[in-house]
Design a protein around this nucleic acid. Structure first.
Ligand SMILES: [Zn+2]
Ligand SMILES: [Zn+2]
Ligand SMILES: [Zn+2]
Ligand SMILES: [Zn+2]
Lengths: 137, 137
DNA sequence: GACTGAAATGTTACATCATTACATGAATTG
DNA sequence: CAATTCATGTAATGATGTAACATTTCAGTC
């Protein structure tokens, strides 16, 4: 119940552009916009936003990256997702930009309970905390 | 803990543009983008997006409207918020667009608990469920 | 009523985020 | 070696959001 996104399990070997984009995302703990990624890949021959968005779409499908809706930005997945696709939440530091993923069964349970009581059928959930991480307070 | 937004309590009488924007939002159960609002207010003399965004900023401050991050859109508040500003969550129907707000102490408690355990100090939280409402299944 | 300062509004231009449409190239397969 | 599919490239455009500055409105004061 209340999955974060549909994950296409087989992350077959990445294509060139997918690998480039994932390399950038995986090399930082900061959320990056598609255009920020593009800027870092100019030297590798990328020229247009759509090239980045296409790669991002697939990385999202594979569960290798996440989109942060409240920032219009992307991060590499940095979390061991439980077997059962559970609710993923993000804590985003507004000072240093660090993003922490977390999941918790009780959160899933609560949301599933609410959804059932309202007869709402969720397909995708966004949960993003903005604030200050422990290092930045 | 884990407030949704800072609410400036005194929603003094709205200015002309604030009233126009609120009137549009309040007249529908659909989330509207700033540009969709603008289009509906051309006849009332509004010409530029910034006029709508300024009004929206204040309506958000007053707690009279909410921004849906996953849609880049806005809705009028349609919920009796508890005394203590609690976590607000949104269920968004992907078929009919209907938006339902809900709050729950146990959700607040869970997020406050997680935040404390991680020493994360939240200032703002986004929780949005996408799916199908009971009428659309 | 005229002066003054603050709030609201208006105007233009620009910045940022994302997609559509179509062309080209590389890999796979019957 | 076509035929197909998938990945990539290119150009243009659409959608969302903000900065900078000018003008108007209005309340308080003289
Ligand atoms: Zn993850
Ligand atoms: Zn931090
Ligand atoms: Zn509300
Ligand atoms: Zn519906």
């Amino acid at each position: 119940m209340s999955p974060t996104a549909q994950v296409t399990p087989p992350p077959r070997t990445l294509t060139k552009n997918e690998a480039l984009v994932f390399g950038i995302l995986n090399g930082t703990d900061q959320p990056l916009s598609a255009y920020a990624i593009l800027d870092q890949l100019r030297d590798d021959g990328l020229r247009a936003p759509v090239q980045v968005y296409r790669a991002l779409d697939r990385l999202l499908e594979f569960g290798m990256a996440h989109r942060l809706e409240s920032l219009n930005a992307f991060v590499a997945c940095n979390h061991d997702h439980p077997e059962e696709a559970a609710q993923t939440a993000f804590a985003i530091c507004e000072s240093c930009g660090k993003v922490t993923e977390f999941t918790d069964p009780s959160l899933d349970e609560y949301l599933a309970y609410w959804a059932k009581s309202e007869n709402f059928a969720p397909t995708r959930t966004t949960l993003e905390l903005r604030g200050l991480c422990s290092a930045c307070q």
